[in-house]
Structure formats: structure tokens, C-alpha cells
């Protein structure tokens, strides 16, 4: 464990789901959810994972926490391969790596009180065996996410969407993790509430030195929160780089289109719009070569020949396109 190594390193991660069919069930194909994705996250860094539906971004988030088992590839946390962890080591790992889900309605057990939900990680991890101390810690956590101790006895259904998401965040930071996967944490919230939660995440990152894998389809919120952004399409990384460089000067045609599709209250600021043709292809049978070529305004015949590798274009910046 040396200081310069990244906190989390993902190497050639792949998750293909088998599809069985036929009268005698046999393998007839794969849903290629994630294919050969590599990236790393430093301590206290926020990496945005931007993608549309079917991009595999949620699957990547779950693999990184080993909530699902990848088909191949490695996830190293502080230099250790989490795929080799036994149950006890995995439980310890969860003290350092946590998750905030998109849906604050579904991710809270309807039968539990807010106090029980937030104290669950502490009990599981046996962190505050004394119940008085544990309660104090839960109150402290609720205050951290700007909820008063009045909420202790309430149940999820009595809370608004924003309040539920705060409870979800309190649960995630209860164990004092170094790393959090935030899977679309604001997309199900009302517009006027989103900024509250974004600000809260920002504060927590500063206060707790959290590293965050911020997963979202909303590249605007991502630009606001992330140090670096990785753009994924059909389970593959199209482009990765520091936030400001990537959004001001996108290299990959998909990144460019994604940025141009974002509506802004001031249309003059948006610039030229690139409207992509067609639909996102089926991940069971992705296009040959570059998976984006079927919708790419700059595609040429060669794009179908081989999968373009992620090539470095400048330090810390890489894109997978042969037409750069």
C-alpha cells in the first residue's frame, strides 16, 4: 500500500450475462453489459461515469463493490484484488467502500425506522457495540446530512424524496468509508431538491476526503461534481479525461453529441446541436468494430473492422476512436 497507488483500480472488467434458450436450455448468446472497462480512482477523487441506458454504468458500479461477480477482469482496492476476498475480508472491505442508490424509495426497508436504517451498518460492522454510543453516532450522522434527531423514529414513507436520499447517504457514510459509489443519486429527485443533494455530496467529499464513483446519465451534474469523467457507451469506455478538458473540448464524437444534447435554459449557450440518428443498439448483438459507429456522424468503413483501443491523446486523456 504505497501513497501514490490509486485507491481503486479497475482492469479489463467484463460482465457478460448468459442467455439460455431453446427446448433443452443451452447458451444462445450473451448480454454484453460491460466489456473490458479499465479506469482508476485516486484518494479523494470524484470520477464521473457518464452513459445512457444500456451503457453498463450501473453494472460497473455493482462490480466495483462486488455486489455482483464480474465475468472477468480485476478490481483492486488499495492494491488488493477484491475478487479474492472471503466473506470476512469482504465485510471489512465494505467498511471502506459504500454505495448510494438512485431510488431512495426502494433502497430503504419500509418496515424500519430511519434510526434503524442508519444504525444497521454500525451493527453489521460491530463499530459501536455500546447502544448509547451507537445512538449518538446515528444522531451525529443525521445532523451531517441535515436531518434532525426528530427523524429517528420516522419511517421511509413519511419522508419526502430528498429526505429519503439524505437517509441513504447517512447510511453510506455511517462506517466512515473512503470510497462511495453514487448511482444516479439525484435523478429521481425534484429539480429544486437536486441541488441540495449535489451540495451535500460535495460537502461530504471535502469533509470526509471521500473518493466517489459518480454514475449518471446527466453530464451536467457530473461536470459540476467530478474531477474526471469517463464516458461509456454499450459497455465500453469511449473517452476518459479531466472534466474541464473533456467538456470544453470533447474528442470522441459520442462525447460531443452527448454534450450537445443537453438542453440549457439559455439556448445561446448550448452551441451547435448534434442530433444522433437511430437507437442505442442491442447489447446482445453490438455492432462490429466500434460500437458507436452505427450512430456516429463521422463513421467510415474502417470503423467496422476492429474495436478501436482507448488511446492516450494527452496526459490523463484517452479516447477510443480511429478518426482522431
Amino acid at each position: 500500500m504505497n501513497g501514490t497507488a490509486p485507491l481503486l483500480e479497475v482492469r479489463r472488467l467484463r460482465k457478460w450475462y448468459e442467455i439460455k434458450g431453446g427446448v433443452i436450455p443451452h447458451l444462445i448468446g450473451h448480454v454484453q453489459a460491460v466489456t473490458d472497462v479499465s479506469f482508476s480512482i485516486g484518494r479523494g477523487e470524484v470520477l464521473g461515469l457518464a452513459g445512457e441506458s444500456g451503457s453498463g454504468k450501473t453494472t460497473i458500479g455493482r462490480c466495483v463493490l462486488r455486489l455482483i461477480e464480474p465475468t472477468s477482469g480485476e478490481v483492486l482496492f488499495e492494491g488488493e484484488d477484491i475478487g479474492t476476498f472471503g466473506p470476512e475480508r469482504l465485510r471489512k472491505f465494505r467498511r471502506h467502500a459504500q454505495v448510494v442508490f438512485q431510488d431512495p424509495f426502494g433502497s430503504l426497508d419500509p418496515r424500519m425506522t430511519v434510526g434503524e436504517i442508519v444504525s444497521e451498518p454500525l451493527e453489521v460492522q460491530k463499530l459501536f457495540p455500546n447502544s448509547k454510543e451507537r445512538r449518538d453516532r446515528v444522531v451525529e450522522l443525521l445532523e451531517t446530512v441535515a436531518l434532525s434527531s426528530e427523524f429517528l423514529k420516522r419511517r421511509p414513507r413519511e419522508l419526502s424524496g430528498g429526505q429519503r436520499q439524505r437517509v441513504g447517504i447517512a447510511r453510506a457514510i455511517a462506517v466512515n468509508p473512503m470510497f462511495i459509489v453514487a448511482d444516479e443519486p439525484v435523478s429521481s429527485l425534484d429539480v429544486s431538491i437536486q441541488a441540495q443533494i449535489v451540495n451535500l455530496l460535495e460537502d461530504l467529499r471535502e469533509k470526509l476526503g471521500l473518493a466517489i464513483l459518480f454514475i449518471s446519465h446527466d453530464i451536467v451534474v457530473m461536470e459540476h461534481l467530478s474531477n474526471r469523467i469517463a464516458v461509456v457507451y454499450l459497455g465500453r469506455v469511449m473517452e476518459i479525461g479531466p472534466t474541464d478538458e473533456l467538456t470544453s473540448n470533447p474528442k470522441h464524437p459520442y462525447t460531443e453529441a452527448l454534450l450537445s444534447a443537453v438542453p440549457d435554459p439559455d439556448p445561446a449557450l448550448r452551441g451547435k446541436r448534434i442530433v444522433l440518428e437511430g437507437d442505442i443498439p442491442n447489447p446482445v448483438a453490438p455492432p462490429s468494430g466500434c460500437v458507436f459507429r452505427t450512430r456516429c456522424p463521422r463513421a467510415i468503413a474502417e470503423c467496422a473492422a476492429a474495436i478501436p483501443p482507448l488511446r492516450e491523446i494527452s496526459p490523463g486523456r484517452a479516447a477510443a476512436c480511429i478518426r482522431l
Binding site: V191, S192, A195, R270
Partner: peptide, 13 residues
């Protein structure tokens, strides 16, 4: 307030 609370694409500007 709603317009101010919206994150906007800065594109490093």
C-alpha cells in the same frame, strides 16, 4: 431560485 439552482454545463468557461 429554480433557475439559479440548476447546474449548467460550463465547458470550462
Amino acid at each position: 431560485a429554480l433557475l439559479r439552482s440548476l447546474p449548467r454545463l460550463r465547458r470550462a468557461r
